[in-house]
Design a protein around this nucleic acid. Structure first.
Length: 239
DNA sequence: GCGACAG
DNA sequence: ATCTTGTCGC
């Protein structure tokens, strides 16, 4: 316990002033998106040990087609539950900055306000880019699913996630598939759910996220090859 | 006190 | 996140 606390404290001390302000002030605004949404950016990353590759994909919201893509690769810190941003924040932001067109909304493969401090990585990305943001994950870091009130919408079942008696997000299921949706920044609960439902296609995972996931993985493998790092011994390069 | 714990 | 085996569907 002591060791863990010290470890966290060291990270905390080195954290940038910017991130400290975000955490300490908890300025997460749940408002409705002001502008009409034309472009949505999906953010995700892939890893091999401490090397991470991130991808930002710009989507046309109306037609659900990709328009632009940007990447970033870097060495990253280890993952600590509740402190995911220490690992992935910089990586995602770097890819995001590579987009020429700024989106009207960001969708991140991370938690939003369903977080112990109500400020997951999706919130942090939204705050620092001053952009509405939604977090979509496979499971919720904090909160419990309220199974008493189920909303059915076609094949989809929608449950609410509560944290300390407040609704902080939704669980959407279809068969065995399952995603968690939570507002990150400048988006209300209802709007976060509504937008996410529009991004669902064959799979529950929103299209911008599934593409970002796929591309980041491809990019990671390319970069590992260029760096001469072999994964599972299938490296053809002669070192 | 004990278990759980985004990716 | 990543690894793994088999299975299903196009």
């Amino acid at each position: 316990m002591v060791i863990k606390m010290r470890f966290l404290h060291n990270h905390w001390a080195r954290y940038s002033l910017h991130m400290k302000q975000i955490y300490l002030s908890k300025k997460i605004r749940l408002e409705d998106v002001k502008t009409d949404i034309k472009y949505i950016a999906g953010l995700d990353a892939s890893y091999f040990r401490d090397i991470g590759a991130s991808c930002a994909v710009l989507f046309n919201f109306k037609y659900l087609k990709p328009i632009e893509v940007a990447y970033a690769t870097a060495r990253v810190k280890r993952y600590i539950p509740g402190y995911f941003s220490l690992r992935e924040y910089g990586l995602l932001l770097e890819a995001f900055k590579g987009l020429f067109t700024k989106p009207d909304l960001i969708i991140v493969n991370a938690c939003g306000i369903n977080h112990p401090r109500k400020c997951g990585l999706a919130s942090q990305i939204g705050i620092s880019t001053n952009t509405p943001a939604i977090g979509v994950t496979k499971s919720s870091l904090a909160g419990t699913v309220d199974k008493l009130h189920v909303i059915r919408r076609g094949e989809l079942k929608i449950y609410t996630i509560k944290l300390k008696k407040a609704i902080v997000g939704f669980m959407i299921t279809r068969g065995n598939e399952r995603i968690i949706v939570s507002p990150g920044h400048l988006v209300t609960l209802d709007t976060a759910l509504k937008i996410t439902l529009e991004l669902i296609d064959k799979r529950l995972t929103p299209k911008p996220l599934s593409l970002a996931h796929k591309l980041s993985k491809i990019r990671l493998e390319e970069d590992l090859r260029n760096l001469g790092i072999c994964e599972q011994g299938n490296c053809n390069k002669t070192n």
